[in-house]
Design a protein around this nucleic acid. Structure first.
Length: 308
RNA sequence: CGCGGGGUAGAGCAGUUGGUAGCUCGUCGGGCUCAUAACCCGGAGGUCGUUGGUUCAAGUCCAUCCCCCGCAA
């Protein structure tokens, strides 16, 4: 089949690779190159890099729903459109271009976690299960008919980044089965149950701010769910301190002000949350490198410091 | 030239107005102990990121370059 692949980040790569290996005729539509990092180096999205390495034509538009993008899509004339973490909203006209419609690979068990950051929010909310849903893209935000579903359990200490990797691979496998069913004409469409639908917002830096009025479990989930981006943080002496990894702890180090730090280079670093002490295992101070909490403590004795 | 922090022992940090380079951990040796991530004693380990300059004297002051990181985008 001739397929227009609309995807941008690493999450989309396994799916793109699967389509390429399967011998489909491809065109990659992705976001424009963006300035990245401290020196604002213009960086192409991963899907573009992959496409160029494999001789796949690349099309980049700020908004594919505007006339320019729509025309490019029309002249590419795909049989099928596939989206995976594309990062742009499609127009109704976009969706009418491919005669077989548009299949989306989504990183949640729809209708739950519709929206931009389903994997992170599932972890932040402490879900123990999530998965991949393939669906027919319609005009709404992840509201189309469900095609296939694959479930996975979320590990106790699994990060959003870990889940991203697993789900991106699972997404490719699920997409492969979905397309096979489409070609065989056996695809079954199941409308979503609107009553069970939930939406999650795009993740912002502020979402990583830790509130020590929450339980150790909640904070542990926030740390996992915002790793590797945007990262969880709290303020230490007015400076942001990133918390990269934590571990649930049984230790009772007594009562103190919420956010209090205790520990040493041998036992580790602990912070007091609403219902107990949470171990911080990996962190990063402003202007400093990422390091283990035990290393951090060697040069920054907790004393009676308070995180806020 | 977007703003800012930093490069000192294997690791993480301190080093005041320039004057013999310290702390915590680790490491090595010894001791105590039924035992230990505990405790006691002792030792090793650093051309203080680069290059040049000022000075009787530079980790510290000046200049240059390299590298790392936080914020903003």
């Amino acid at each position: 089949m001739k397929i227009a692949f609309l995807g941008t980040p690493e999450f989309a790569l396994p799916s793109l690779d699967m389509l390429f290996q399967s011998g489909h005729e491809l065109g990659v539509f992705t976001q424009p190159d963006r300035p990245v990092g401290r020196h604002a180096v213009l960086t192409p999205p991963p899907t573009k890099v992959y496409a160029m390495e494999h001789g796949i034509p690349v099309f980049q538009f700020e908004k594919i729903r505007l006339p320019e993008g729509l025309e490019a899509l029309k002249s590419f004339a795909p049989d099928l459109m596939v989206t995976a973490a594309f990062g742009q909203i499609l127009s109704a006209e976009n969706l009418t271009v491919p005669k077989c419609g548009c299949i989306n690979v989504h990183g949640s068990l729809l209708p739950k976690y519709r929206g931009a950051a389903p994997i992170q929010w599932a972890v932040i909310n402490g879900e123990t299960e999530t998965g991949i849903t393939t669906m027919m893209t319609d005009f709404g935000m992840d509201t189309g008919d469900i095609l296939m579903v694959e479930r996975v359990t979320i590990g106790e200490n699994e990060t959003a980044g870990d889940l991203f990797e697993r789900l991106s691979v699972l997404g490719a496998e699920t997409l492969k089965r979905t397309i096979a069913a489409l070609e065989a004409g056996t695809l079954v469409r199941t409308p979503q149950n609107e009553l069970q639908a939930t939406k999650c917002p795009m993740l912002k830096k502020e979402h990583g701010r830790i509130d020590f009025n929450k339980t150790a479990r909640d904070i542990h989930n926030l740390v996992r769910g915002t790793n590797p981006w945007p990262g969880a943080y709290a303020l230490l002496d007015g400076e942001p301190l990133k918390i990269h990894a934590t571990r649930m702890s049984e230790s009772d180090l007594g009562s103190a002000q919420l956010g209090s730090l205790k520990g040493d280079a041998k036992t580790g670093l602990f912070v007091l949350c609403q219902d107990g002490w949470l171990e911080i295992t990996e962190l990063q101070a402003s202007g400093s490198k990422r390091m283990s909490a035990k290393d951090f403590v060697k040069g920054h004795p907790p004393d009676s410091k308070i995180l806020a």
